[in-house]
């Protein structure tokens, strides 16, 4: 398979529960060796999408192809080649980590020496070799998450799907898990799809992200591309003045300004949202009006803010 070989493809994927549309005409294409972050707030339909990709939930409309297979009709073959770590992954508490993996190995047709070696290797890879023979009920959430990754890797997957892999884990643990995930795509050439509602945590490892709100994909692309789009899009400018001179109205009169808001804590500061960078025009307007300009700064927007804004916009649209 070439570098850009398509591994997962969804076209017009839709899932309805009665009147509720959980996933609305989703188009998604993933390539071999890339890490795709499916980002969205809780209840956006991320898990539903994942279940449809795995053939565990039947789409109401649209098509899915995973490794060229239809997950609904060729479920076994898909599940043989796709690793899945569910949201808040669970294991049998009374069994040890190793025993839990042994069960998964058997379900995947791995047994005997080969299985034992592979289990030991994976437990080492995820850093659980010391806890391997402790009961899973004694594991922390981060340890369970890492065991979940080992569990999904047992079948040596071509596609790995991780649902909220970083929830409930301390920042240090998050970094470790993300490193694990990154190495999965790098070293094994697997396609990784991870879902998260915490953008800043996962943006560092994702090659591409898709922002998913209310069952719709509102934006997708490389992280830098999305960041550029912010630069091209609306900007926020902080204006600090001295004295009163009907500042609010004057600022609002500048072409391109969408809204002006007085800072609740500091009456001499204003937040201006505009279609483009209008700092020059703002300065001129204020100076012409005889208002002393103390500060003028464009607020640095990170993807975080874009993300939040997409949420707000999508929220408004409903």
């Amino acid at each position: 398979m070439g570098e850009a070989a398509t591994t997962v493809e969804a076209r017009g994927l839709t899932k309805r529960y009665g009147d509720l549309v959980a996933v609305d005409h989703l188009d998604l294409t993933l390539h071999r060796g890339e890490i795709f972050g499916l980002l969205g707030p809780n209840g956006a339909g991320k898990t539903t999408t994942i279940l449809m990709l795995l053939g565990l939930s039947e789409p109401s409309a649209g098509t899915v192809r995973v490794l060229g297979l239809d997950p609904t009709r060729q479920a076994l073959e898909v599940k043989r080649r796709v690793g899945y770590v569910p949201d808040d992954v669970g294991f049998y508490g009374a069994l040890t980590g190793r025993e839990n993996l042994r069960y998964t190995a058997r379900l995947n047709g791995l047994r005997g020496r080969a299985a034992e070696d592979r289990i030991a290797e994976l437990l080492h890879d995820v850093g659980l070799e010391d806890a391997a023979d402790a009961r899973v009920e004694t594991y922390s959430r981060g340890m369970r998450q890492r065991l979940g990754i080992a569990d999904a890797l047992l079948k040596d997957p071509e596609v790995a799907i991780l649902d909220e892999p970083t929830v409930g884990i301390d920042p240090e643990g998050v970094a470790e898990i993300l490193e694990l995930i990154a190495s999965l795509a790098r070293d094994r050439g697997a396609t990784v799809l991870l879902s998260s509602h915490l953008l800043h945590q996962v943006q560092s490892v994702c090659d591409r992200v898709g922002i998913f709100v209310g069952g719709r994909m509102v934006a997708q692309g490389r992280v830098e591309e999305l960041a550029e789009r912010i630069a091209a899009g609306p900007v926020t400018i902080e204006v600090g003045v001295a004295g009163d001179g009907d500042v609010e109205r004057r600022l609002a009169a500048v072409p391109g300004v969408r809204s002006v808001e007085r800072d609740a804590r500091d009456p001499d500061r204003f937040l201006v949202r505009a279609d483009r960078d209008v700092r020059g025009e703002l300065a001129r307007a204020l100076v012409e009006a005889g208002v002393d300009l103390r500060s003028l700064a464009r607020r640095e927007e990170r993807l975080d803010e874009l993300y939040r804004r997409f949420f707000e916009e999508a929220g408004d649209g409903r």
Binding site: E77, V85, P86, G90, Y92, G93, T104, L107, K155
Partner: peptide, 14 residues
């Protein structure tokens, strides 16, 4: 309750 069901049904069994 143990949240093992999604993982179990994602294995290559019917």
């Amino acid at each position: 309750a143990q949240r093992t069901l999604p993982r179990l049904v994602a294995q290559p069994i019917h």
